[in-house]
Nucleic acid binder design. Structure first.
Lengths: 145, 145
DNA sequence: ATGAGTGCAAAGTGTTTGCAACTAT
DNA sequence: ATAGTTGCAAACACTTTGCACTCAT
């Protein structure tokens, strides 16, 4: 969360990039810094807005690169959009999105472990539970409606 | 599956529509017939292709109407698209999509009941497990890769 | 120096909308 | 007759791509 934490991640990514023959650039640094300072899940558009001078397409390309390097994870949300976050920013976890207000909730990482075991055993299907947000209605919206 | 089954659904929908002050039209009938004859889950584009003379936008509007009436259900897939199917065409069930080949698998409806209870108890979050397809890798793709 | 990365503009999906013409009731 | 529906075209949100130029190495 502090400036040094951001620098730390930037340094790690820089090392990983060079390891790959890739380069640490201002755009990539800016995207990393947005993600470091953003506590939650954030859309590509929000990243682009926060890293004002980085072009949208470069944001997408940076997010892709960071994903390949294993620093960033994305979650598909119900309505066709995607949320990004640094891996281990809040530890491994799953996601649920309220269908009504759009809020994303973090869920305990092992929540679907039993289901994953069952799918693997019964169908040979390897569940990647973190990759899509579960859908439903949060308590605030249930009460309001 | 037979012609009479299709007619049956059309008649039920027609009744529901008129109940609402809405109308049974050729477009809606065509969309229903595509869904009746389609065993699995189908995208709006596929519906439009199968109902050749119905405009895309009318397909979307028909699917929306049929959803509101409770005859159709949609599932959000990982990569921003949506699949539709008649409700009770194969009974209540959940969905999982292979991240690699895109195939959609039907899962037993109660698979996430325990998880749903836990989310409700712990967070007051009402899970609608059928509304988003779980993501992972199917056995065929696991073996191939 | 040289190839990876960027900005830009343009295209590509999947979906929605405003409006005049049409049609089921 | 008259509202609900349609087709069309255009706009929309999100993302990807081709290309010439730039910059990290």
């Amino acid at each position: 969360m502090t400036a040094s934490a951001g620098n730390d991640v930037v340094a790690k990514v820089a090392a990983a990039l060079r390891n790959n023959g890739d380069r640490m650039t201002a755009s990539r640094r800016a995207v990393i810094e947005v993600l470091v300072h953003e506590p939650g899940h954030i859309s590509a558009e929000q990243v682009a807005a926060a890293a004002a001078h980085v072009h949208r397409s470069s944001v997408y390309r940076a997010l892709e690169t960071l994903t390949e390097l294993g620093f960033v994870q994305h979650v598909h949300l119900g309505h066709g959009s995607t949320a990004y976050h640094l891996i281990n920013h809040t530890g491994p976890h799953l996601h649920a999105q309220c269908r009504s207000c759009g809020t994303i909730y973090d869920l305990p990482g092992p929540l679907l472990d039993a289901v994953a075991r069952r799918l693997d055993r019964d169908l040979g299907f390897r569940l990647e539970a973190h990759h899509v947000a579960l859908s439903g209605t949060c308590s605030a919206c249930t009460t309001t409606t």
